[in-house]
């Protein structure tokens, strides 16, 4: 493959977990809740799905356990935030702290190992449509030759679009974020939709986490490495719209692929590269608030 194709190909690989987690986060974001806990939800999902796959050798059961455990944690965040009236930011942080603690503790408890747990017996995730990868110039590496998770992320994004913009449930969910009183006035509970959104976010984050660990056939502590935070950035950058998420996550994918590539040429310090997403979001948020401020001033 030439450089451009390989950059595009690895951009898609990098963007997949981001896109999955961001799609889940979109649900909470649209209900007006800032879900800081995506990182923790991903980590827990990554751990529990690969571990349950190892023990059960049953992919369905593994998915159920993996997503189930993340959804349980999401339910904890949601109920403490919504029903015990806690600050959603702090509960999200607690979820992250909890997930990183509990995965290490459980990994030590189950495998007597705090570090990398490898499962060599797990099969490689099959690569789909491999033939097409080099057949078409730009679209080839974009669309073909990826694992099941990449296609799943596209499907789930499309499904989410349908759910959010074409179903009654989606209308109510978005109304929650836009104007919660509109739900109250017709006798629906905004909190209920916020709770459900958290559960959905837990589900998506778990799938994103599962992709990281199952693809690797191993669990590495802190395997998510900040991807949950980047997913939040993707949501903001994508202006909270499904198509926007797709574009924003691809931008992140391509920029990281490029920085990986560039490291071999210019030796940019890796810490700077890791800092880029945060600076990027900061700038995006500041610009957004300037825009918002001026818009309100005009009105």
């Amino acid at each position: 493959m030439d450089t451009v194709s390989s950059l595009i190909f690895s951009a898609v690989t990098i963007m997949t977990p981001l896109l999955l987690a961001a799609t889940g986060g979109l649900y909470t974001e649209l209900t007006g809740m800032l879900n800081i806990g995506i990182e923790g939800l991903m980590l827990l999902g990554a751990f529990s799905s690969v571990v349950s796959l190892h023990f059960t050798h049953n992919i369905v059961l593994a998915i159920l356990i993996g997503t189930g455990s993340s959804m349980l944690l999401a339910a904890v965040i949601a109920s403490i935030t919504l029903y015990l009236k806690a600050n959603v930011f702090i509960t999200g942080l607690a979820a992250n702290l909890f997930a990183s603690g509990i995965t290490t503790v459980l990994s030590f408890h189950i495998f007597a190992n705090k570090g990398v747990v490898t499962f060599p017996e797990l099969p490689q995730m099959p690569v789909l449509f491999e033939r097409g990868t080099e057949a078409v110039p730009v679209l080839g590496p974009l669309l073909f030759g990826h694992t099941f998770f990449t296609y799943l992320s596209f499907i789930l994004l499309f499904l989410s679009y349908v759910v959010l913009y074409r179903t009654p449930f989606g209308f109510r969910l978005r109304a929650t974020g836009l104007y919660p009183k509109s739900l109250i006035s017709v006798g629906l509970s905004p909190k209920r939709y916020q709770f459900i959104a958290f559960l959905i976010s837990g589900f998506f984050s778990a799938v994103a986490g599962a992709m990281l660990s199952v693809n690797l056939g191993a669990f590495v502590p802190n395997i998510t490495a900040g991807k949950g935070w980047v997913a939040l950035v993707v949501i903001f950058l994508g202006q909270k719209r499904p198509v926007g998420l797709l574009i924003a996550s691809f931008i992140f994918g391509i920029s990281e692929a490029f920085s990986n590539y560039a490291q071999g040429i210019w030796h940019i310090p890796s810490d700077f590269i890791l800092a880029i997403p945060y600076i990027f979001t900061l700038v995006a948020i500041v610009f957004y608030s300037i825009y918002d401020y001026n818009r309100q001033k005009v009105e």
Binding site: A175, S182, L188
Partner: peptide, 16 residues
Amino acid sequence: TLVDEFTVAQNVVLGK
């Protein structure tokens, strides 16, 4: 108690 971003019909039928 209406959602500005929705149409009249969407606001009216919300929840039903």
